[in-house]
Design a protein around this nucleic acid. Structure first.
Lengths: 177, 177
DNA sequence: CCCATTTAGTTGCTACTTGCAATAATCGGT
DNA sequence: ACCGATTATTGCAAGTAGCAACTAAATGGG
């Protein structure tokens, strides 16, 4: 780690490598902890994390078809069907026949669903606000931006791999060294 | 969102709220995508994501007992046992009797396990380096730091809730509104 | 020194989540 | 009107996780 630097270039390259290692470790932690945090917060209500993601997608992007929701959530269409089944049973989402296409269903969040989503989201946002409050405003602004870029980059890299072929087990199709 | 600001204070508070919402949305995305990215990259090898986390913990923190590993991974001890079972079967981890306590096992990563972990990690780090390369060096430094703080804050909040009581379904014990 | 209690890890069982394959209904072009 | 493609659902199987019950070992009080 603490090697003597020969040239400015080598130093730069080494620093990048070190930064990447640090970022990777920290991100792994963050992702793991957030999975648990989400599960912990969401399980207090009567839906699972995946169901909450679906609710979020429908709340933020408006009504969509099952297929679009599956793509949004990076899930198989069959899994999506079942997620919707659960949400419909609980009255948070409704299926209605699509106007254009009789095969398709139009999924939309119900009033009750939106209310639940808002409640859950308020709690999560409040937590973030608490943490952000301690940060320098200038840093705050860039954080969101950078994280967005990380997410976008990772998504682009990931989605390009699966494209049409549903799930994620299609390892060969993804850019997996 | 775009409300007129009355005072500097109100503006500040509103901005915090907006930042928190943005951060929350972006983080949710990031976490979701990274889950898939990890699964996608790791599944190319013969271990699952959870198994890889266990390998990471043993690689980074050295030998530990099953109990400590469970705490580290926020998993139930029974789940941890099975994760180790799988890794031991594949030759990436070995159980040996603990010197101090005959009930306990000392888990340590094998040479082959470390080699696998290094391979997987190299790929992930390379991906991060690619993304970091595009960023301003000053921003780069703060990103890791901020993400670390977010992870720590979330972890502190989360862990305080479960403390001794194993899993995460103990909703009442966690600070869950 | 012995027994009750606690602790470390394992196993049985169950529930949930997810993906793949097969299926039914429908669309669209020829 | 027919045939291939597309939309969603269902059957099935595998993986993952937690709780509870259990075994073995340590610890503490009498």
């Amino acid at each position: 780690m603490q090697r003597k630097l020969k040239t400015a270039d080598a130093s730069e390259s080494e620093r990048l490598q070190a930064d990447a290692e640090a970022l990777n470790a920290v991100l792994a932690d963050l992702v793991r902890v957030y999975q648990f945090r989400d599960r912990d917060r969401i399980c207090c209500f009567d839906i699972s994390v995946t169901q909450c993601y679906a609710l979020e997608a429908l709340a933020e992007h408006g009504p969509m078809r099952s297929q679009a929701l599956a793509a949004q959530m990076l899930l198989d269409k069959s899994t999506t069907t079942r997620v919707i089944d659960a949400l419909e049973r609980k009255g948070y989402v409704e299926r209605r026949p699509d106007d254009q296409d009789a095969r398709a269903v139009s999924l939309r969040i119900t009033r009750s669903g939106r209310s639940l989503y808002d409640t859950i989201n308020r709690g999560l946002v409040a937590q973030q606000a608490e943490m952000l409050a301690e940060l320098d405003p200038a840093v705050r602004a860039s954080v969101t931006d950078v994280i967005r870029r990380l997410a976008k980059a990772a998504e682009a890299r990931f989605v390009s791999g699966i494209s049409v072929g549903s799930g994620a087990s299609a390892c060969s199709t993804s850019g997996c060294s």
